[in-house]
Design a protein around this nucleic acid. Sequence first.
DNA 1: TATATATACCTATCGTAGCTATGTATTTTA
DNA 2: TAAAATACATAGCTACGATAGGTATATATA
Lengths: 107, 107
Amino acid sequence: MPNPPFMTGVPELLILNLLREREEMYGYEIVAAIGDATGQTVSLKEGVVYPLLHGLEQDGVLKTQRRPANGRTRVYYALTSKGVRRLFELTDEWRRLQRAVTRALGG
Amino acid sequence: MPNPPFMTGVPELLILNLLREREEMYGYEIVAAIGDATGQTVSLKEGVVYPLLHGLEQDGVLKTQRRPANGRTRVYYALTSKGVRRLFELTDEWRRLQRAVTRALGG
DNA sequence: TATATATACCTATCGTAGCTATGTATTTTA
DNA sequence: TAAAATACATAGCTACGATAGGTATATATA
């Protein structure tokens, strides 16, 4: 199964950016929101999003809060200050690379 | 060592695009040209470029020609028709994703 | 009432592909 | 003549997105 091009880091960037906008979201909500935010160009499955969320929490980039909602338990995620910095870094890197490639392609 | 974000597919895209512009290049030349074309934003080592070139030849995306130059043997690479198609596909995909992410980031 | 669908979470396994490090050999420069 | 540049090559590592599958509750439908 060939690896889709250009996707490395994109899930993380999109998740962090969503959490900057919305303050607090739970996993299942994030999955849908990513599709919405990108006009379904990026459509990540739970199998991608959940492990990523766990890793980001482990790294102190996200903090969690378990809260019941509709009789079910949801895990809400929010940015830490480290997460905010990480988002800035990733955004910068994205712009840097995006400019470089566009330049190389469009000379 | 953490994986640099957003790089998946970029080496291939840049190489194919260079070969579209220059018709024919050898590996060592490509390594330097990538740095030039991106203002050193992307700076790939031989360990990245050579295996990639071999793979692309294997896939019929590139064709090679060994020719002596300066008493040394150089391996010259050029696009096949399949390579041209591959370049179009990758360029499309790049633009698609680039637009989607930029939009999600709220440009 | 039974059941299908939506919600909400989770994990295991896999393959790809870029990165580092290292090696060989020749040619050119200091 | 030693060092640097040229030119090729491969081995091993790791990260990470993708697929597939699993659990459980709530709601809509037949």
